[in-house]
């Protein structure tokens, strides 16, 4: 069960409309390393994750990523809401307008629709955790590139916050991977002792 909370994880403000930036930001909504991908990736891995701590971690990070999806959606919504169709066209959002008007859509910055192929699930805890760390690092890098693309201090502040959260998630997944590897080593050593 999930329960919706009518608040954002952080306040989101934009200082001016910026349609091009909205187009770029869409990749963190429905692109390969975006928040939809992260949320679904982690929540989906939980069912077969053998470790208790990591099951909790996947649940909690997956839930936070859903919250981040709403932060990105809010940024895009606020950047686009007062635009005219012609302004959208001039900013490279003409194709988006033709297909979706101002509605958000799960697609990357080029308009390529989201696909489940973005999500990795191998069922092997070491493989999945290593993949999650890579996913967080890719999301962190994407936020950095997006920060480099904006001159709006309000947008930049939100993106820096999200970049920081990806770093924390990556650290937590690194701890999880380290813990699993240690446990594997210990049980292997135990088995070798038993075999003697």
């Amino acid at each position: 069960m999930w329960i919706y909370e009518k608040t954002l994880e952080i306040p989101v403000r934009v200082s001016k409309p910026d349609l091009q930036m909205a187009k770029f930001l869409l990749t963190q909504y429905g692109g390969p390393d975006g928040e939809l991908s992260s949320a679904l990736r982690y929540l989906n891995q939980r069912y077969t994750m053998p470790n208790k701590r990591i099951k909790a971690l996947l649940t909690d990070i997956g839930t936070e990523e859903l919250g981040h999806m709403e932060v990105i959606a809010t940024l895009v919504y606020k950047l686009v809401k007062d635009a005219t169709p012609m302004q959208m066209r001039e900013a490279g959002l003409g194709a988006h307008y033709a297909d979706h008007d101002k509605a958000l859509f799960y697609a990357d910055a080029n308009g390529v629709p989201w696909t489940a192929a973005y999500i990795q699930t191998k069922g092997d805890p070491i493989a999945d955790l290593a993949d999650n760390i890579a996913a967080e690092e890719k999301a962190r890098a994407t936020y950095q590139w997006l920060i480099n693309l904006t001159d709006d201090p309000d947008v930049s502040q939100v993106l820096k916050y999200l970049r920081g959260r990806e770093i924390v998630h990556s650290q937590r997944f690194r701890e999880a991977l380290f813990m699993l590897e240690e446990e594997n080593r210990a049980s292997k050593a135990q088995k070798e002792d038993d075999d003697l």
């Binding site: 909370e5 608040t7 954002l8 994880e9 952080i10 306040p11 701590r53 990591i54 909790a56 971690l57 909690d60 990070i61 936070e64 924390v168 998630h169 937590r172 701890e175 999880a176 813990m179």
Partner: peptide, 26 residues
């Protein structure tokens, strides 16, 4: 309006951060 909400968001954020920490450091 803003300050009540902001204070709420601050507490909510602290709990998110602590929740993730406690998952790995119970």
């Amino acid at each position: 309006y803003g300050s009540t909400l902001r204070k709420l968001q601050e507490i909510q954020f602290a709990l998110v951060e602590l929740q993730l920490y406690l998952d790995m450091n119970p």
